[in-house]
């Protein structure tokens, strides 16, 4: 009996999220008395599947088919479902990235089984497995009982840090050829467009955030200036995107981007829980707000109480003065 871990990759280079999935799955498999296997799908699977033994995978299934080149949610979900049946796997796990959740949802729909998304912990010792999963993008947790012979789940992204297993397993590559019809490849990537290279909101070391308190699209100019001085980027709240002041790609939060900079300067942002879940991974937070009671102020490590329209330019000026 096995626990199968879906490993994601991009034409041969394995996604870090998949190593998290293996790291989470390994002790779980042991507690459940299952052997851990992995599956890697599509072109480049043999390359991406190398070295998964170090993470405790006994067998690494590499699935290939002429119709499986790039990612396609239905083709991947169907492949996983077929592999589950042919190997008699009793559990399935992936990392809860957009792709991971989509592939497991596809497999679950095809197998008509429940699927528990974004778990933080799983207890497999009872008749029913119990899990704690994430709701509201991480603001709330839900304890659930899962009634099913075959358990399908994802682990919340970043819930664990990837690390190799204490004792490596064989990690033998075994190839698998699913039977796929044309209808499962209605949804495969037809084209890819790369828009940005370099620093993005999710990877920037400094983010200067603005909320409703900024007041208009034009009033973001001083925030841009400060961000430029710090080699950072500008972020914003949903109030800002809803007003059309900034594009949605700048939005931080539950339905925007999750940031993890060295410092997040959050100005004119009240700190609603849905904004906070996107910002809380920042190593330091400086809130600038006229309201000393604002949630962003009480949750931040540092704060300036005042009008951002005065405070931000003053900071930029002071930086320039010191740079000389």
């Amino acid at each position: 009996m096995s626990l199968l871990v879906v490993c994601d990759h991009d034409r041969g280079s394995l996604a870090d999220a998949s190593l998290e999935a293996l790291t989470f799955a390994h002790p779980l498999a042991r507690a459940a008395g299952l052997e851990m296997a992995a599956v890697v799908i599509g072109e480049g699977a043999e390359i991406a599947g190398q070295g998964l033994g170090a993470y405790g995978a006994h067998i690494v299934h590499t699935a290939s088919h002429p119709l499986l080149t790039d990612f396609g949610p239905e083709a991947w979900g169907e492949t996983v479902a077929q592999l589950m049946i042919s190997t008699g796997a009793s559990a399935l796990l992936a990392c809860g990235t957009d792709r991971g959740n989509e592939v497991v949802a596809q497999a679950a729909a095809r197998l008509d089984l429940p699927f528990v998304a974004n778990c933080r912990s799983v207890d497999p010792t009872g008749d029913q497995w119990s899990m704690t999963r994430v709701q509201w993008g991480g603001s709330l947790l839900e304890d659930i009982d899962l009634t099913a012979e075959i358990r399908l789940m994802t682990v919340a992204h970043h819930a664990v840090e990837a690390k190799v297993a204490e004792a490596p397993a064989a990690g033998s590559l075994v190839s698998f050829s699913p039977e796929l019809g044309e209808e499962t490849v209605h949804t495969v990537v037809a084209d890819r467009v790369v828009l940005t290279k370099g620093v993005t909101l999710s990877t920037a070391p400094v983010v200067v955030g603005g909320g409703r308190g900024v007041g208009s699209a034009e009033a973001f100019a001083p925030l841009e200036e400060l961000a430029a001085e710090l080699n950072g980027v500008v972020g914003c709240s949903r109030a800002v995107t809803n007003n059309g002041w900034r594009p949605h790609s700048d939005q931080v939060g539950q339905t925007g981007t999750r940031i993890a900079p060295d410092i997040y300067i959050a100005s004119g942002i009240s700190g609603a829980i849905q904004h906070w879940v996107g910002a809380m991974a920042a190593k330091n937070i400086l809130a600038i707000n006229t309201d000393s009671e604002a949630n962003m102020v009480s949750r931040a490590g540092h704060a300036v109480i005042g009008d951002l329209h005065q405070v931000i330019p003053a900071i930029t000026q002071e930086i320039r003065r010191r740079k000389g």
């Binding site: 400086l286 540092h302 300036v304 109480i305 005042g306 002071e318």
Partner: peptide, 21 residues
């Protein structure tokens, strides 16, 4: 976390830049 208030208004700028440094 305890919030450290660096100051009020634009006068807080030097303290902010100290922190950035």
């Amino acid at each position: 976390t305890e919030t450290v208030i660096l100051g009020t208004g634009p006068e807080a700028a030097p303290a902010v830049v100290d922190l950035l440094e």
